[in-house]
Design a binder for these strands. Structure first.
Lengths: 210, 210
DNA sequence: GTCTATACCTTGATAGAC
DNA sequence: GTCTATCAAGGTATAGAC
């Protein structure tokens, strides 16, 4: 997608990606012009076309890179192994999801809100990656449900609900807020397990396998 | 916001609102032109300006009307009363939220995704209404937590998490899907209560007040 | 690889006839 | 209240000099 470039060009491309991500997240893909991206990058508008064939390609590249990095990072985590005990695996997944997304708020915003700005071939490419992420979580929930550890009669529905809950944090979390990120993280991990009847903490003496 | 209009004009305004809602939901505010809205409405572009001063005003009106209708409809429900038992109130709130939103997918989409397209005064107006909705739910959770029925050490966080979960359904639910809406609704109501340690169903014999 | 200049198109919004 | 005609501004993308 990106054209070949020398060492100076690669730097420009990277600055352009960062500028585009920030601008798309704040104003939306359609509301941002290539001229604005170029200005933030520190080059003329025409120079962008040495690195990205079209504005649409630039958007697609941002989403694909984000989702591929997400999948690769999780698959490298030890708790991602299929042998991990389901409650531990789900807790690790929730924690990983929250941290990875909190560190990349712009990319999350763009990747979830600009799906409709992709033309059909690009949409399908990105959608496959999103689906792959959902499948990672569903596999954990399904294992736990079959083992009688989770109450999840419909693992796919539980997956969509919980991913929605976890990803939604990105929409309102502010680093300057009242609670530290660690507290918000702990509360969400707890609610994730609780939602499937597998809470680990406190006054709940009723998890199926105590 | 809308201009005065005779009986024919009022009809045009309503058709324009519907057209704009559908187009904004599908392609995004910035990607849709007044000409497209006019074409879908069946009038020329200039005619729209008899009913909406600017494109921005049209967007704002759509959001405000949606959120005001949401608040008014909930406040008219019997379970919205402050005396309702917290578990019943939360279940009713979740069910109401799911149904109201499922019936207005375009309005939900626009109202959550196009906040960034509002200029500052309009943003604050819409944000106040969104906040009011969150406050409705938070009040229920707070009551239940204080009564020891819900496990929610931070009612505001629980509110944001659960609203995110419930609203997220709009992003992936398809009427033609495998499960009927009633099943998806039941599963979400159950997960909502479970997340706060107050499940009502089945193999969970451990709700604090059995 | 980046620049200046520009082709070509669509945009939001307005003026004035009907 | 709607139309046709129009304006000024700004959109993506390209050409060709350096």
């Amino acid at each position: 997608m990106a054209r070949q470039a020398g060492s100076q060009g690669a730097e420009t491309a990277e600055r352009a990606r960062r500028a585009a991500l920030s601008l798309f997240a704040r104003h939306g893909y359609a509301a941002v012009s290539m001229r604005e991206i170029a200005a933030e990058t520190g080059v003329g508008a025409a120079a962008l076309y040495n690195h990205f064939a079209t504005k649409q390609d630039l958007l697609t590249e941002l989403m694909v890179k984000h989702l591929e990095a997400l999948l690769a990072a999780w698959d490298a985590e030890p708790e991602a192994a299929a042998e991990t005990e389901p409650r531990a695996a789900l807790a690790a997944f929730a924690r990983f999801h929250l941290r990875f997304h909190a560190a990349r708020r712009d990319a999350v915003f763009v990747s979830t809100m600009e799906l409709r700005s992709l033309d059909q071939p690009n949409f399908h490419r990105v959608e496959r990656l999103r689906r792959a992420w959902e499948d990672r979580m569903e596999a954990i929930i399904r294992r736990g449900a079959e083992a009688g550890i989770f109450r999840a009669p419909e693992p796919r529905i539980a997956t969509m609900a919980l991913i929605g809950m976890l990803t939604g944090v990105t929409n309102w979390y502010r680093p300057a807020g009242r609670l530290p990120a660690s507290a918000i993280e702990a509360l969400h991990v707890e609610m994730t397990l609780s939602a499937l009847g597998a809470a680990m903490t406190g006054d709940d003496a009723c998890s199926p396998h105590p």
